[in-house]
Design a protein around this nucleic acid. Structure first.
Lengths: 200, 200
DNA sequence: GCCTACATGTAAATAGTTACATGATTGA
DNA sequence: TCAATCATGTAACTATTTACATGTAGGC
């Protein structure tokens, strides 16, 4: 997950560790705080794997910074991690999905829909599970009941948001399909991107 | 977190590993799936620490089950984990909070309020951070923007829920205080060690 | 005869944390 | 001068997962 986030941020522009940390804490801060103890080793590891490389380093007296940039191999790895529609194991899927969403612009439309629909299936399963548990477990205490009701509401709200997104993607697809059919999104940067969103 | 959940479930009634796993996947399934590979070692470790003990084991031919029950030491550990209002490190705080909420009934009213208010502060910080990021980062792509808007809405909804809970707790407190003042929630187990939390 | 559920466990790997170590620069 | 911020890193630890190993019982 950290790897995905690093690659995604380095796609924007080359950065050094400290800068990445700050960006990460803004981008993912609501559900995740990265520590230097995981960031720097991750950078080293990725450099070794040639997914990123040193763009340049500054060593003015002591102020030394190592500025990394993403490599072609890193770009491929990024897209692979971002797509990731494997059979799933449903770990803390929510947070993983959120990280993916933050870089959704880099994914091609077809895969976007696949990822969104996979997420929808997971949410649907969760709702079903909730309801089953609730019907089995009548004697719950009021805190559990309250928590469950609130969680269910949130998942439903997630669901609505997801469905709106899926609709938007599908509409954009049919528009660009009848027009032209270029998978131009995996170049170094998206350009005009899909037609400006509907009522967003 | 797993430990907290196990202790909380064993408070209800003695259970064996397989049964615990099923209960856990219902109780926390929306954001967490426990594997046997973590459950069984955790049970062994807790048994060694005398936080749980074997109530009885069944070994009919092969169908062997080890039914655990919580010990007094485990009860104390449970309350300690459940209260846990330390300076915080804001890891994936949301999920930790949810697990706590699932067992809130076992906490005394004062600590309940402390836990809820700590959570409120965390959410407030997140909202502030979100807004700061949004004002700094005008050129965001539409997916990030959409994600952020949705996340912010969810946090605000969490906030409302929290505040309702806090109000309820405070009301209940004043009522029971003017009425009678029985800390009956921790009956058979120690009640002395919890009260210390207030000033800290 | 095969698949699912029951039931317990281990070993290796993964992903991350905390605490520590270093040292310069900037501003109150 | 003191604290905060910049900047990089290591070592030990924690918690958890995946994949494996084992074997029975019951239903289709």
């Amino acid at each position: 997950m950290l790897k995905l986030a690093i690659l995604g941020l380095l796609k924007e522009k080359p950065m050094h560790g400290y800068e990445l940390k700050k960006k990460l804490s803004y981008l993912l801060g609501s559900f995740w705080t990265v520590s230097y103890g995981s960031l720097y080793p991750a950078l080293k590891k990725m450099e070794k794997a040639k997914e990123i490389e040193c763009a340049y380093s500054v060593k003015e007296k002591t102020r030394n910074r190592i500025v990394y940039r993403i490599t072609p191999k890193g770009e491929r790895e990024f897209i692979k991690l971002l797509s990731d529609v494997r059979p799933d194991s449903s770990l803390s899927d929510t947070e993983k999905f959120d990280v993916r969403m933050a870089f959704f612009q880099y994914l091609d439309p077809e895969t976007r829909i696949l990822v969104l629909e996979k997420r929808r299936r997971i949410l649907q399963d969760q709702i079903a599970k909730f309801k089953k548990y609730r019907s089995l477990n009548k004697g719950q205490d009021r805190y559990q009941k309250g928590l469950f009701r609130h969680k269910l509401e949130q998942i439903k709200s997630d669901m609505k948001w997801l469905e709106r997104l899926i609709d938007q993607e599908k509409q954009a697809m049919t528009v660009t399909e009848s027009d032209t059919n270029p998978p131009e999104l995996l170049k170094d940067e998206g350009k005009g991107e899909i037609t400006a969103a509907t009522g967003a």
